[in-house]
Design a protein around this nucleic acid. Structure first.
Length: 121
DNA sequence: ATAGTGACTTTAC
DNA sequence: GGTAAAGCCACTA
C-alpha cells in the first residue's frame, strides 16, 4: 500500500515537554547551570557560551518559560552591564539569592569586574 | 507571511 | 550618570 494520504507527517506540533528536549534550550540551561556559585553572567554571554551568538533575547525567553521546570541558577543571569533585568517581585528574589552567595547587589546591580563569570574557570 | 512582543545589547545623545 | 532608537533573534497571534 501507498498510504500517501494517510502517511504520518512525522512533524507534529511540539508539545511543551518536547520543547524541553530542544537542543538549543538544553544548551542554554546547561550553560547557566555551569555558572559557578558566586559568579554572574549576562544573557548575551550565556547565549554565546551556548553556541547561540546574538541570541540574548532567546536566553531571556527560555528562562521565563522553563525556569520553573529546570533547576538552574537563573539568578546568576543579568543584563550586559550587571543590572537585574527581571521585573516585579522576582527581581527582589534574584537580589536575595545573589546575596545569599556573597554577591554584592547595589541598587539592583552587580559589579561584573568582581563577580563576572569567566568561562575559563 | 506580516506584525507585535520580549527576563537583550549596542550606540548615540 | 540616564534615556532613546535601532539592531537583534525567536516566539506568538
Amino acid at each position: 500500500m501507498t498510504p500517501r494520504s494517510s502517511r504520518p507527517i512525522g512533524r507534529q506540533p511540539k508539545s511543551r515537554a518536547e520543547h524541553l528536549q530542544d537542543e538549543r534550550v538544553q544548551r542554554v540551561l546547561a550553560t547557566i547551570d555551569s555558572i559557578p556559585r558566586g559568579a554572574v553572567a549576562s544573557y548575551g554571554q550565556v547565549a554565546e557560551e551556548a553556541g547561540l551568538p546574538r541570541s540574548a533575547r532567546f536566553v531571556g525567553h527560555v528562562l521565563k518559560r522553563f525556569v520553573n521546570d529546570a533547576k538552574v541558577p537563573w539568578h546568576r543571569v543579568l543584563g550586559s552591564d550587571g543590572t537585574i533585568r527581571v521585573q516585579g517581585g522576582t527581581a527582589r528574589d534574584q537580589a536575595r539569592l545573589l546575596r545569599e552567595e556573597d554577591v554584592k547587589v547595589v541598587k539592583g546591580r552587580v559589579n561584573l569586574k568582581v563577580c563576572g563569570w569567566d568561562p575559563e574557570d
